[in-house]
Design a protein around this nucleic acid. Sequence first.
DNA 1: GGGGTTTTTGCTCGATTTGAGCATTTCTCC
DNA 2: GGAGAAATGCTCAAATCGAGCAAAAACCCC
Lengths: 327, 327
Amino acid sequence: MKPEIDPGALGRVVVGLNAVIFAADEGELNVLVTESLDGGQPALPFGPFDPETHRTFEIGLREWVRGQTGFELGYVEQLYTFGDRGREAPVAALAGAEDARVISVGYLGLTPEARALKGAEARWVAWSRFFPWEDHRDGKPAILSEVIEPALRSWADEAAAPGRRAARYDRVRLTFALDGAPWSEERALDRYELLYEAGLVAEAARDRGEAAGPVTLGQAMASDHRRILATALSRLRGKIKYRPVVFELTPAEFTLSHLQRLVESIAGFPLHKQNFRRALDRAGFVEGTGRMEAKTGGRPAELHRFVRATLRSGDALGLSIPRLKDG
Amino acid sequence: MKPEIDPGALGRVVVGLNAVIFAADEGELNVLVTESLDGGQPALPFGPFDPETHRTFEIGLREWVRGQTGFELGYVEQLYTFGDRGREAPVAALAGAEDARVISVGYLGLTPEARALKGAEARWVAWSRFFPWEDHRDGKPAILSEVIEPALRSWADEAAAPGRRAARYDRVRLTFALDGAPWSEERALDRYELLYEAGLVAEAARDRGEAAGPVTLGQAMASDHRRILATALSRLRGKIKYRPVVFELTPAEFTLSHLQRLVESIAGFPLHKQNFRRALDRAGFVEGTGRMEAKTGGRPAELHRFVRATLRSGDALGLSIPRLKDG
DNA sequence: GGGGTTTTTGCTCGATTTGAGCATTTCTCC
DNA sequence: GGAGAAATGCTCAAATCGAGCAAAAACCCC
């Protein structure tokens, strides 16, 4: 049980930081992506972690994002550390360290506005480009019924043993809400991993060194970045329910409809407007400013602001998300 | 935004794995600890991660736990990656790598029974030894009212600026449920971090190279291991509410009272027996086996088993935990 | 073998929360 | 000035939650 470390004997390790940076633009949740090294596919911003100069991961991350993009991150949270062999091979090769193992610590960062970027290398993209099956705001996406569900059913059927077939069916049913099971927006990561295993995303074939299969869902990303993005989306979808992190994505003042559109964009399904407001009211997260917003069409809405200290005793810590039964 | 890695220029990094391994014994949640290197204080099991032989972190962890303790881990989940400068200095020194930065990936592992261990170096300890203020099963612990709350209030008062004082008060009030705020068992990590900042745990003085202060709460651990343990406890307390992970800690057959005692031991507060059963019933996680348990005193209870596939449509994914108002 | 104790198990009841819909107000646009 | 759009206000039934009462089934001790 005692550690016996001989760093000389261990293989080389390079530690990097990957950031999933979300910002809202017109009530739509966007993610910051760059052009990948191996050409073509978008990638997440990646920066090396230098143990000499960075006292903590988070300090390193903030510094590097500031330097590269020119803006300051608000909320930052560690997501997961990715260390499977084979990942980031092109990065390691580029660094002249083919033998090094690249480990990256994934971070989620939130920032209020999708600001213009210093360089032209990075751009904001709506997350739904990468996970079209996750956006149920206009009802269940056709791609689910028409492509994904049949493909997953036949993947489950492919399993040899009857036991494994049943296990696959169960997993498909629970993650993709088949046969009346409830759709859980927080399982976005589970769904991506299942699609990867079933070979329905382009990354699956690529990582096996094969040609892409007949079905490739959503926009692919470099390395395992789409998995990291799915982790971030799942985490954010869960987090907004028990911490008021949405307000890290709003401007200082906003209308309640704007806030609702933003939450809907994160959760991926429409909310019941009145019940959403009732819940907001009970939680006491926002207060009216008295000022109105001049908008196109319709009665003008009051601008609200986030009130940080909810000093009442038994209040909620996050938003309740009153979903509608039929999306 | 492009990665420019020059591994030669970066400082040395050693990656290790820390495991928080929980097991239930007589309905009590125990954690596996070893003797630390710097003498005296208990430590979490630690193993080096070798990029040459371990394809993934999880495989490395399972292998190493099997080799060291002789048993197989059931459920495994990554917790957090700890990389602040200054941690694990003694480990690095021992390895002849004083200049290396030690990063460790923390894992949570669950295993059904607190089995006897191969070596004598490790032992099972109830988690409450490390966090006595977290155990509310017999009512609110005296240490909270008598020691912690006064100490935190005076810590808040110490702040110079009135603004900072108010911020400290708010934080204390929300994490430690002062003035009628609700106690949230999942905030165990927040509470530990607050106590650390306020200098009320032995680690705080030790890390600053000072002598221990007048108040040192709970059993201290080596390095930042108590923080890792707090992370694990918080994660487990949250997880049981939306995934049936408790059953990774139960034997194959158990009585409902045994299951309840275990959940109480994890959550740290007593549950309403009838409502707990009603919720279990609705979720459909367990089924009776018909066999009875012969117990000392009282009506014998039926033995139950976990049913993995909950095939009903709209059912819950975790246990609901019906707490009692006055602990 | 009978009363007391302990534990399991079944049931009820009111308060609160949740999901959903209707109605009214207050703007802009044509 | 009327139609349409969006915000806002209110009601209602179903489901859930927190809490307590009571019966059943074993054991203990005398």
